[in-house]
Each structure stands twice: as C-alpha cells, then as structure tokens.
Design a protein around this nucleic acid. Structure first.
Lengths: 134, 134
DNA sequence: TTCGTTATTGACGTTAACGTTAACGTCAAA
DNA sequence: TTTGACGTTAACGTTAACGTCAATAACGAA
C-alpha cells in the first residue's frame, strides 16, 4: 500500500483498469498523467485515477491521445478571465458537435443492425414454416 | 464519365468523400471494397459507395478496419441456414452492446461538457457583476 | 499527335500507440 | 541474506493506416 490510503501504485492501477503498466507510463510521458512520487515510485491519487478514466473513455470513442489531452484540459482548466472563458465555451461547443455526430453515427448503426436482425428473424420463421409444412 | 451513369471513378469518389485515392486503393487491398474495372480503371457502383460510407462511419466511431470488415460482412451476408442465422444474431447482439457502451460514453461526455459550460457561464456572470459594482 | 489530366502498380516512408527486452533498484518475507 | 514481487529508465520493435514518391499507361481535347 502507498503512503496515502487513497493513492495506489502503478500495478494496482493497471489491474484496476485492465491495461499494462507500460501504457500508464506512456500516458505520463505524453503529459496525460502526472502522478506524485514516493521516492522513485509513482503514486496515483484519485484525481489521476479520474484522469485515466477519462483517457480510456476517450479512447473507446476513437479520439487520439492528443485530442484527449485537449479535452481533459478543458475540464481541468483554471477559471480564467473573460476572453479565455469565451474561447473555452467555443471549444466546448466544437467538442459537443463532434460527439453529436458520433451519436448520430451510432444511432444509424443501431438501426442497420436492427434491420439485419429482422431479416434474420424473418428468414428463421420462413425456415420453421417450411419444416412444419412438409 | 464512366460507362454507367451510376458508377464513378476513383477520383470522383475521393472528392465526394474528402479522402485520397490512396485511401480508397488501400481499402480495396484490405478487401473492404471490390470495384469493377473498365479495362484497368476502377469503377465504383452505388453499392461500393454505400460500402465506403459504412467504412467511414465505422472509422468515426473508432473501429479498426478489421472490425469494420466484419461489421460490413454482417450486413451483406447471404441468407444462410438456421445455424448460420443464429450465429449471425449473436454477432449482431455483440455489436449492439459495443455501440451501446459507446453511446453511454458519449452521453457522459456530453454531461461533462455541460458541467464545464455551466461553470463558465457562472464565472462570466460573476465577472460581469464585479464590473458593474465598482 | 501531342498535351494535360487522370489513372495504374509497386515500393518505401511515416505516425500513433503502445509491446518487448534489458539492466537495474527496493523492499518485505522466509 | 537471499529470493520474489514489484518498481525504475532507456531503447529498440511492431502494427495499423495510410502518405509519398516513381515509373508507366490510357484517355479526351486541341
């Protein structure tokens, strides 16, 4: 266990999320994670765990790590002055548009799956019928 | 123009979808597209155009080309006998689960964006207030 | 027939996101 | 005190998905 009850080692974190320690170190190299250190060893706070969760969610949605970095920075940005805030709002809107496109893509895909599924069921009913007739 | 009014060249297709001809040829090499030929030149029918649309949709959702190939094959499969049909239904269900996970990820992300957005607006209101007071 | 455009195949190059191996440190338990 | 589990950095390897030439062919218009 680490110093803190909240924090954990790289190995524990890897197991928890089903990834390798190499991956976690890589994310740190890329600036996506910034764990504390207990001597030479990494210590991951709940905040880092949350960040990792966001990274993996982004990956599932097909974002590149560089994009994920930007997105996470949107979340964990300091308040800032008016100009910055407006810029931030624009970026948020752009990301939202991307996500909406993806969701539309998903809904279309789900529709396509449903269509194939129905054709399958129809075909199965047909076969069952034939089997009963003769 | 091609022989058929419906069909088009690789260049036209590339322009239509905002990708390069290299990409299209690559997809053919990978077996994702199978255009006809007019002599040596490729001819893309509406069916191929639809396939390309599916490929690009899959890419936007972060699927690998190998996965996309499987998915497209689900769509364009021959009827088949009962065993095959049940197997197909299982695959469909698996894909649906994946898509539902992605959609949940998207909805969470949209929620996060909304939260940040609201904090932004709050902060802006604060600033406007301060400006008015003094 | 020549020119410009578009096409072809083939081959090597590139980038992102890690995997893998090497060589070594640390710490608790036996 | 040595063994085993876990950690460290550094460096090279790998795979997917194309990019980027190069050399060549075909086609339509002038």
């Amino acid at each position: 266990m680490g110093f803190d009850e909240e924090s954990c080692s790289i190995g524990e974190l890897a197991r928890e999320f089903g990834i390798t320690t190499r991956t976690i170190r890589f994310y740190e190299d890329e600036g996506l994670l910034t764990p504390l250190r207990a001597g030479t060893r990494r210590l991951f706070s709940p905040r880092e765990r949350t960040r990792l969760k966001l990274i993996l969610r982004g990956k599932r949605l097909g974002f590149q790590l560089s994009e994920i970095a930007e997105i996470i920075n949107l979340f964990s940005q300091a308040p800032g002055e008016e100009g910055q805030l407006h810029l931030l709002l624009e970026k948020i809107d752009a990301r939202r548009q991307e996500l909406l496109v993806k969701r539309a893509d998903i809904d279309e895909s789900l529709g396509d799956l449903r269509a194939v599924e129905e054709r399958c069921h129809g075909r199965l009913a047909e076969l069952a019928n034939k089997g009963n007739e003769s």
